Amino acid sequence: MNQPVMPYKFPAALAALLLTACNAQPAEEPPLAGAALGGDFTLTGEDNSQVSWSDFAGKYRIVYFGYAFCPDVCPTDVQRAMAGLKQFEASEPELGAQIQPLFVTIDPDRDTPQVVAEFTDAFHPRLIGLTGSPEEVKAAADKFAVYYARGADSEAGGYLMDHSNITYLFGPAGDPIAMLPTDEGPDAVAAELAKWVR
Protein backbone atom coordinates (compact mmCIF):
# COMPACT_ATOMS: atom_id res chain seq x y z
CA MET A 1 0.00 0.00 0.00
CA ASN A 2 1.40 3.37 -1.00
CA GLN A 3 1.97 5.91 1.73
CA PRO A 4 0.64 9.39 0.99
CA VAL A 5 3.46 11.82 0.07
CA MET A 6 3.63 14.60 2.62
CA PRO A 7 4.73 18.01 1.34
CA TYR A 8 8.21 18.96 2.52
CA LYS A 9 8.23 21.90 4.89
CA PHE A 10 11.24 24.21 4.88
CA PRO A 11 12.48 25.24 8.29
CA ALA A 12 11.30 28.80 8.90
CA ALA A 13 14.83 30.25 9.00
CA LEU A 14 15.77 28.59 5.68
CA ALA A 15 12.56 29.78 4.05
CA ALA A 16 13.26 33.34 5.17
CA LEU A 17 16.82 33.14 3.83
CA LEU A 18 15.68 31.85 0.43
CA LEU A 19 13.00 34.54 0.22
CA THR A 20 15.58 37.21 1.01
CA ALA A 21 17.97 35.83 -1.62
CA CYS A 22 15.23 35.83 -4.26
CA ASN A 23 14.31 39.44 -3.51
CA ALA A 24 17.86 40.76 -3.09
CA GLN A 25 18.78 43.52 -5.51
CA PRO A 26 22.21 43.46 -7.10
CA ALA A 27 24.55 46.13 -5.76
CA GLU A 28 24.09 49.35 -7.67
CA GLU A 29 27.02 50.22 -9.89
CA PRO A 30 28.50 53.69 -9.38
CA PRO A 31 27.32 56.14 -12.08
CA LEU A 32 30.88 56.92 -13.19
CA ALA A 33 32.20 53.35 -13.02
CA GLY A 34 34.64 52.76 -15.86
CA ALA A 35 34.78 56.42 -16.92
CA ALA A 36 38.14 57.68 -18.13
CA LEU A 37 38.46 60.26 -15.37
CA GLY A 38 41.28 61.05 -13.00
CA GLY A 39 44.89 60.03 -12.98
CA ASP A 40 48.15 61.02 -11.45
CA PHE A 41 49.30 64.63 -11.34
CA THR A 42 51.81 66.67 -9.40
CA LEU A 43 50.76 70.13 -8.25
CA THR A 44 51.77 72.58 -5.52
CA GLY A 45 50.05 72.45 -2.15
CA GLU A 46 49.20 75.26 0.23
CA ASP A 47 52.59 74.96 1.95
CA ASN A 48 54.49 74.99 -1.38
CA SER A 49 55.12 71.24 -1.19
CA GLN A 50 54.65 68.94 -4.18
CA VAL A 51 51.36 67.04 -4.02
CA SER A 52 50.42 64.10 -6.24
CA TRP A 53 47.14 62.26 -6.81
CA SER A 54 48.85 59.08 -5.66
CA ASP A 55 49.52 60.69 -2.25
CA PHE A 56 45.86 60.03 -1.44
CA ALA A 57 45.79 56.35 -2.36
CA GLY A 58 43.51 54.45 -0.01
CA LYS A 59 41.23 57.44 0.59
CA TYR A 60 38.01 58.53 -1.01
CA ARG A 61 38.50 61.90 -2.71
CA ILE A 62 36.16 64.80 -3.38
CA VAL A 63 37.61 66.86 -6.24
CA TYR A 64 36.53 70.30 -7.48
CA PHE A 65 38.26 72.50 -10.05
CA GLY A 66 37.57 76.22 -9.64
CA TYR A 67 39.27 79.46 -8.67
CA ALA A 68 39.51 81.61 -5.59
CA PHE A 69 38.50 84.86 -7.29
CA CYS A 70 35.25 83.32 -8.56
CA PRO A 71 32.41 85.63 -7.48
CA ASP A 72 29.60 83.09 -7.25
CA VAL A 73 29.64 79.53 -8.60
CA CYS A 74 32.84 78.23 -6.99
CA PRO A 75 32.21 79.44 -3.44
CA THR A 76 28.61 78.21 -3.64
CA ASP A 77 29.58 74.75 -4.93
CA VAL A 78 32.46 74.34 -2.48
CA GLN A 79 30.36 75.55 0.46
CA ARG A 80 27.61 73.05 -0.29
CA ALA A 81 30.04 70.18 -0.89
CA MET A 82 31.93 70.86 2.35
CA ALA A 83 28.73 71.38 4.36
CA GLY A 84 27.54 68.00 3.06
CA LEU A 85 30.86 66.44 4.02
CA LYS A 86 30.57 67.91 7.53
CA GLN A 87 27.09 66.40 7.86
CA PHE A 88 28.41 63.02 6.78
CA GLU A 89 31.38 63.31 9.17
CA ALA A 90 28.98 64.07 12.04
CA SER A 91 26.88 60.97 11.35
CA GLU A 92 29.73 58.66 10.26
CA PRO A 93 32.99 59.94 11.81
CA GLU A 94 35.14 56.97 10.85
CA LEU A 95 33.95 56.92 7.25
CA GLY A 96 34.11 60.70 7.01
CA ALA A 97 37.76 60.60 8.02
CA GLN A 98 38.44 58.42 4.97
CA ILE A 99 37.44 61.24 2.59
CA GLN A 100 40.02 63.78 1.42
CA PRO A 101 38.53 66.92 -0.19
CA LEU A 102 40.65 68.67 -2.85
CA PHE A 103 40.25 72.07 -4.52
CA VAL A 104 42.30 72.51 -7.70
CA THR A 105 42.61 76.00 -9.17
CA ILE A 106 42.10 76.67 -12.87
CA ASP A 107 43.54 80.19 -12.42
CA PRO A 108 47.18 79.62 -11.47
CA ASP A 109 48.21 83.15 -12.47
CA ARG A 110 46.37 84.56 -9.45
CA ASP A 111 45.83 81.56 -7.20
CA THR A 112 49.11 81.24 -5.34
CA PRO A 113 49.47 78.66 -2.55
CA GLN A 114 48.61 81.38 -0.02
CA VAL A 115 45.50 82.44 -1.94
CA VAL A 116 44.14 78.90 -2.29
CA ALA A 117 44.88 78.27 1.40
CA GLU A 118 42.81 81.29 2.42
CA PHE A 119 40.00 80.11 0.13
CA THR A 120 39.91 76.51 1.37
CA ASP A 121 40.21 77.48 5.05
CA ALA A 122 36.86 79.25 4.74
CA PHE A 123 35.03 76.00 3.98
CA HIS A 124 36.58 72.97 5.69
CA PRO A 125 39.67 72.41 7.85
CA ARG A 126 40.76 69.40 5.78
CA LEU A 127 40.11 70.86 2.32
CA ILE A 128 43.46 71.04 0.48
CA GLY A 129 44.02 73.71 -2.17
CA LEU A 130 46.28 72.91 -5.11
CA THR A 131 47.88 75.15 -7.71
CA GLY A 132 50.84 74.93 -10.07
CA SER A 133 52.20 76.19 -13.34
CA PRO A 134 49.69 76.77 -16.16
CA GLU A 135 51.01 73.63 -17.84
CA GLU A 136 50.65 71.49 -14.70
CA VAL A 137 47.12 72.74 -14.07
CA LYS A 138 46.11 72.11 -17.68
CA ALA A 139 47.51 68.56 -17.55
CA ALA A 140 45.53 67.82 -14.37
CA ALA A 141 42.33 69.40 -15.69
CA ASP A 142 42.54 67.36 -18.88
CA LYS A 143 42.72 64.12 -16.88
CA PHE A 144 39.53 65.08 -15.03
CA ALA A 145 37.68 66.25 -18.16
CA VAL A 146 37.51 69.81 -16.84
CA TYR A 147 36.89 72.70 -19.23
CA TYR A 148 38.11 76.21 -18.48
CA ALA A 149 39.02 79.40 -20.34
CA ARG A 150 40.06 82.88 -19.30
CA GLY A 151 37.55 85.63 -19.99
CA ALA A 152 38.26 89.11 -21.29
CA ASP A 153 39.98 91.64 -19.03
CA SER A 154 37.69 94.22 -17.49
CA GLU A 155 38.47 97.94 -17.48
CA ALA A 156 39.69 97.52 -13.91
CA GLY A 157 42.13 94.84 -15.06
CA GLY A 158 40.37 91.84 -13.54
CA TYR A 159 38.91 88.88 -15.37
CA LEU A 160 36.61 85.92 -14.87
CA MET A 161 37.21 82.28 -15.72
CA ASP A 162 34.67 80.28 -17.67
CA HIS A 163 34.73 76.70 -16.45
CA SER A 164 32.81 73.49 -15.84
CA ASN A 165 31.67 73.05 -12.25
CA ILE A 166 31.50 69.35 -11.40
CA THR A 167 32.20 67.99 -7.94
CA TYR A 168 33.60 64.49 -8.32
CA LEU A 169 33.76 61.64 -5.81
CA PHE A 170 36.57 59.12 -6.34
CA GLY A 171 37.17 55.82 -4.56
CA PRO A 172 40.20 54.64 -2.57
CA ALA A 173 41.84 53.21 -5.70
CA GLY A 174 41.39 56.50 -7.56
CA ASP A 175 38.41 55.21 -9.51
CA PRO A 176 35.57 57.63 -10.36
CA ILE A 177 32.36 56.93 -8.46
CA ALA A 178 29.84 59.75 -8.86
CA MET A 179 29.21 63.45 -9.24
CA LEU A 180 28.07 65.05 -6.00
CA PRO A 181 24.76 66.98 -6.36
CA THR A 182 25.93 70.36 -5.06
CA ASP A 183 23.08 72.01 -6.97
CA GLU A 184 20.67 70.25 -4.59
CA GLY A 185 22.37 71.42 -1.40
CA PRO A 186 24.35 69.92 1.49
CA ASP A 187 21.70 67.33 2.45
CA ALA A 188 21.84 65.79 -1.02
CA VAL A 189 25.65 65.77 -0.93
CA ALA A 190 25.64 64.02 2.46
CA ALA A 191 23.13 61.44 1.17
CA GLU A 192 25.28 60.72 -1.90
CA LEU A 193 28.37 60.25 0.27
CA ALA A 194 26.42 57.85 2.52
CA LYS A 195 25.46 55.88 -0.56
CA TRP A 196 29.02 55.22 -1.77
CA VAL A 197 31.49 55.66 1.08
CA ARG A 198 31.60 52.35 2.94
Rank of each mutant, 00 (worst) to 15 (best):
L130F: 09
P113N: 07
D47Q: 13
V78K: 03
G157A: 07
Y159H: 09
C74K: 09
A140N: 05
Y147A: 12
L130R: 08
R110D: 12
A149E: 15
A194R: 06
G158M: 03
A27N: 03
P75D: 00
G39H: 07
V189F: 00
L130I: 13
A97E: 12
A21V: 15
Y168L: 08
T76Q: 03
S49N: 05
M1R: 05
Q50M: 07
E29A: 15
P93R: 08
N48I: 01
D47I: 01
L130M: 13
N23W: 03
Q25S: 15
R80Q: 13
C70D: 14
V116S: 04
V189R: 01
A13D: 15
F88Q: 02
G38I: 03
V116Y: 01
L14W: 00
V116Q: 01
V197I: 12
D175W: 03
F170A: 01
P186C: 06
F41N: 09
L14M: 11
F170V: 06
A27T: 13
Y8Q: 14
M161A: 08
H163Y: 08
Q79V: 01
R198K: 15
G96N: 07
D109W: 05
N48Q: 11
Y147G: 12
G174I: 09
A139I: 08
T120E: 04
D77P: 10
L127M: 10
Q114C: 00
G151D: 14
C74W: 06
F65E: 06
P181H: 04
P176S: 05
W53R: 09
Q87Y: 00
A145N: 13
V78W: 02
L102V: 14
S154Y: 02
Q25D: 14
A173T: 14
L32Q: 11
D153Q: 14
P71Q: 11
G34C: 03
P176A: 05
V137M: 07
A178C: 09
P125T: 08
N23Y: 01
L85Q: 06
N23A: 13
L37A: 05
G96P: 07
P108L: 02
G171M: 09
G129A: 12
L19M: 07
Y60F: 15
P30W: 04
D153H: 14
G34F: 01
L43T: 04
A13K: 12
P172G: 04
G158F: 03
L37S: 05
G84S: 13
A145R: 14
L17F: 06
Q50P: 01
P11E: 07
E94H: 01
F119Q: 08
I62S: 02
P31E: 00
P186A: 15
